[in-house]
Design a protein around this nucleic acid. Sequence first.
DNA 1: CGTAGTATTGACTAGGCTCAAGGGTGGTGG
DNA 2: CCACCACCCTTGAGCCTAGTCAATACTACG
Lengths: 229, 229
Amino acid sequence: MLDKSHKHVSCSTCSARKDSIFGNYCECDASVVDNLKSSAYYKKNQPLFLEGSFPRGVYCLNQGKVKIFARGDEGKEQIIHIAKEGEIIGFRSMFSEEPYKVSASTLEECNICFINKEDFLTMIDTNPTLRNGIMKELSKELGDRAMFITNMAQKSVRERLAFSLIILADIYGDEQINLTREDMANFIGTATETLIRLLKDFKEEGILEIHTRKLEITNKEKLFQIAGK
Amino acid sequence: MLDKSHKHVSCSTCSARKDSIFGNYCECDASVVDNLKSSAYYKKNQPLFLEGSFPRGVYCLNQGKVKIFARGDEGKEQIIHIAKEGEIIGFRSMFSEEPYKVSASTLEECNICFINKEDFLTMIDTNPTLRNGIMKELSKELGDRAMFITNMAQKSVRERLAFSLIILADIYGDEQINLTREDMANFIGTATETLIRLLKDFKEEGILEIHTRKLEITNKEKLFQIAGK
DNA sequence: CGTAGTATTGACTAGGCTCAAGGGTGGTGG
DNA sequence: CCACCACCCTTGAGCCTAGTCAATACTACG
């Protein structure tokens, strides 16, 4: 349980900063960012922003996990990305000058800092190192999504599950994967029932342990094998 | 048939320039770009670059269409994007400092200009308008791909075909859509046979005319209806 | 200790893939 | 200019993955 009274996270002591674009690219500017930003506690399942609305700034994730998702025609969520500590969220639409094409919502309790649109854009304009970092980030994500699309189009659900579990294990680090079956199904792009059946298979094959909602990967090798490549 | 002896396309007379990021963002720099670039004629099905290799520069499409695709585990192509006249191709990997995650290959005869990596990066560094244009472009594509992923995961092949035909009609403008069945299937993310059967259905429903390989959309309204949204 | 949300299981169906076999078309070279 | 060959397109049959619907069990939290 996070400290809900925690009103201000300082960049200079931010444990996520080493994993962040800010940490990597503007060592010197911690205090500058510190003065511009505000920070806030978010409950589980609380939205940061919604598809269709216009961005007012960017979010920097200090603690917790956030899902980035789009909705299909019937309103079904497709999770595009799960952000972890240190990630900056929601800067895409600020450059494209479009409304958000995706929504963001907390998956657990989070501490999240916020930087105003104008302040952030000024930083980008005046700090080439940060700017290059952002461009690199945008480009990397674009490459990742090409692979994501290919996986969606060509892999079976079983293969996608294996692949996604590897990604999730990486996101959750030493913690166990902790998602509702529905969120997980929406990440993989399948029905909840199908996911459940496959998790059971994986368990029987000795790939993972199921502790109700938390998953513990016990044979990562085999996952790579099933995921293919 | 393009003029194969055409060795140099000039930016100032480039018919695609108005649709290009260069045309929109650096009116004044036409002659600068002109001096830096080289231009070349490409045959049908000629690769520009391959997944896994490192970028040496960017390509600017003066005439023709180019497919951007990734390969799945079994080597099957997944077409991520089809570039038309005026588009700049292959700048993503130059920012991410990774090898290409996708390949590019001409779909028909093309005239394509090439700008050296160093020259292009210098332009980006020194020309904020161009830079913002590029960032906008990266961001837009990222948004598009979120939708692409959602469509792949949630729509039926029939719906995806309708959706893709709308996109293709837009890319081909007043020309008729002209792709092999295989390329088209690889764009939609389905088997060639399934695509063919569905095209037949669409023809019988009065949505399109099939002139062997060329497709003529006759009822775009209905396509929107089927695509949903 | 009840209730809402979440997870699980079963039965059924169908969309779409694979394999296999023909039919067209257009580009090239004699 | 025409014939041939390679490539592309089309059709059919059968199967199987994965989605839907429906009913039941579990779990956590107030």
